[in-house]
Design a protein around this nucleic acid. Structure first.
Length: 262
DNA sequence: ATGGCAATGTTTCATTGA
């Protein structure tokens, strides 16, 4: 089973690349972020033609999340947002897919340390920790994928000295990320030896991608039963190449089949 | 070989992203 997450930075602009990627990789579930589109305009028919059922919660211009599920897989209990946390911004969508609880998240960017948006980011992350604690209690098999807008440690930053203390790497954000893990999840990427300087986002400016000046801010977190089944966690850097890429690359995990009940 | 900001809408610039 393949579970993936990708900040597409406008599903309208990225649709051809998205469909090509779905055709090539055939993930079972893909969590999308920054779809930037009203639900009424979501390209569900195009995705259905590509073999994917879409569940989505969007808005014009900003944010917007979706779960794409390969046809034939059972989907139940779709939920948008976080219980008990009213938020106009569409940033969370959850569903149970073939027995696995999948939560897609688009964590606020935070703009700058000390800004109102930074305060919102930290408050939002605290709410997410609460939601994930509850999800974990209900669903032993839990995967949380998306754009977390946090580089968990300095290995995830191309130039730690230049980024020190900045938004995306600040200590309170990293502490908030650890608090997510403390609900009973692991960063799937770190289950494996990984090549150094592996990132998931590169600025569009200043040749950041060809120079590999990036950050690893997109993640898939797994509960222990899924971590045990995880045989790979990768970032598809190739998807950042070529014309009109998203500034984020897709991240994905491969899970081997569950052991039969004894 | 990758590419030198991009996407959106109240569009001809401002806002946001990370």
């Amino acid at each position: 089973m393949l579970i993936a997450a990708w900040n597409v930075n406008s599903i309208t602009v990225r649709l051809p690349r998205l469909i090509a990627w779905l055709d090539a990789v055939r993930p079972d579930v893909l969590c999308l972020q920054e779809t930037k589109i009203d639900d009424a305009r979501f390209p569900a028919l195009d995705l259905a033609a590509a073999g994917y059922a879409a569940h989505y919660a969007g808005q014009k211009t900003y944010n917007g999340v979706a779960l794409l599920v390969r046809e034939g897989l059972a989907v139940t209990d779709v939920y948008v947002g976080m219980p008990g946390y009213a938020d106009e911004q569409k940033r969370v969508i959850a569903a149970t897919v073939a027995g696995i609880r999948v939560v897609g998240v688009y964590v606020p960017n935070g703009q700058a340390v000390g800004s109102d948006k930074y305060a919102y980011k930290l408050e939002w992350l605290a709410a997410l920790a609460g939601m994930l604690r509850d999800e974990r209690a209900r669903h032993p098999q839990l995967a949380v994928g998306g754009d977390f807008n946090i580089a968990p440690d300095d290995r995830d930053v191309h130039d730690p000295a230049a980024w020190a203390g900045q938004v995306l790497v600040s200590d309170p954000e990293r502490a908030a990320f650890r608090a997510l893990l403390a609900t009973g999840l692991v960063d799937s990427f770190r289950l494996f030896d990984q090549p150094p300087a592996t990132y998931s986002w590169w600025d569009y400016r200043m040749l950041a991608f060809p120079k590999n000046r990036g950050l690893r801010i997109d993640h898939i977190l797994l509960s222990p039963p899924l971590a045990q089944r995880c045989v790979a966690s990768r970032i598809d850097r190739n998807a950042r190449k070529g014309s009109k890429p998203s500034d984020h690359a897709p991240v994905f995990v491969e899970l081997r089949e569950a052991a039969p009940e004894s």
